[in-house]
């Protein structure tokens, strides 16, 4: 599904990713772990098409060159990024935002756009699954939401948009144990044969709830080791500093 070959990224002449390679097949869950500044967020931004990076190498998504697609076109094709810091957009109703977003994606895929009633039915169902208070969906997008609410809102959006590749950028940070479980349930319920995940995290604890197929350790812009779920435990025990 996703093939990253020798990706290098620089910003303001600072090298962030160095010859980074990764392959994610349909249905796989990959965890990428690493200390602050190792390049984790840069990776998620590049995959979703944030501008401002000098890039070399190649990223293929379903055999299409990702660099040739705009941010929204990537979203249309099924790439979803759960932001580390979801943005506040004053005055914009969360439901209306979600509906606009969903219909933009459906339209691009040649699917029928949902009318207000169909949409609300879908939202209601998903919100219930994720124990997200529906009342919050009538508030301004992320405005006045707590950190945990913002993160849950990201997962709700993910489950409504039903992407093929979801990238969770430190979605676990700042969550209490209950919220963590809800986020994990959200991911697990989407976990199907064809849906893949890249879970970027600092800590191992999220991986107690979402069992990854692969764990990669990212340091200084490079994957220094890959392995199964046991790698995360080992990392947790040793800490990043002593890992080398």
């Amino acid at each position: 599904m996703l093939r990253i070959n020798n990706l290098s990224a620089r910003i303001d002449n600072k090298s962030i990713l160095k010859n980074f390679s990764l392959q994610v097949n349909a249905g796989e869950v990959h965890a990428i772990m690493g200390p602050n500044g190792s390049g984790k967020s840069t990776l998620s931004n590049i995959l979703s098409g944030k501008k401002g990076y000098d890039l070399s190498g190649e990223v293929l998504f379903e055999n299409n060159n990702l660099f040739e697609l705009e941010t929204e076109e990537r979203a249309h094709r099924g790439i979803f990024l759960a932001f580390q810091y979801p943005l506040e957009i004053p005055g914009v109703n969360t439901n209306i935002f979600l509906k606009t977003s969903l219909n933009a994606i459906r339209k691009a895929r040649g699917e029928k756009e949902l009318d207000a009633i169909e949409f609300l039915r879908l939202v209601k169902e998903k919100a219930k699954e994720l124990k997200f208070e529906e009342e919050k969906l009538n508030r301004q997008l992320n405005v006045g939401f707590s950190g945990g609410e913002k993160k849950k809102n990201e997962i709700l959006q993910m489950s409504i948009l039903n992407p093929k590749l979801s990238i969770l950028d430190e979605t676990d940070s700042g969550l209490d144990i209950d919220a963590l479980r809800i986020v994990a349930d959200g991911v697990n319920s989407l976990r199907k044969k064809n849906n893949s995940f890249i879970i970027i995290t600092h800590y191992q604890r999220l991986l107690d709830y979402i069992k990854p197929d692969f764990v990669h350790v990212l340091m200084n812009g490079k994957i220094i080791q890959s392995g199964g779920p046991e790698l995360a435990l080992e990392l947790e025990k040793k800490g990043y500093e002593n890992f080398n």
């Binding site: 929204e72 990537r74 979203a75 932001f83 943005l87 004053p90 301004q140 948009l161």
Partner: peptide, 29 residues
């Protein structure tokens, strides 16, 4: 902000749609 635009685009809106949405939010009252 660039980040607000990027966030909307990541959810599938093109830049014109994103601006329209954000500006309408700005004018909501």
């Amino acid at each position: 902000s660039e980040d607000q635009l990027y966030y909307c685009q990541q959810r599938g809106l093109n830049s014109e749609e994103a601006v329209g949405l954000i500006v309408n939010g700005f004018c909501k009252e």
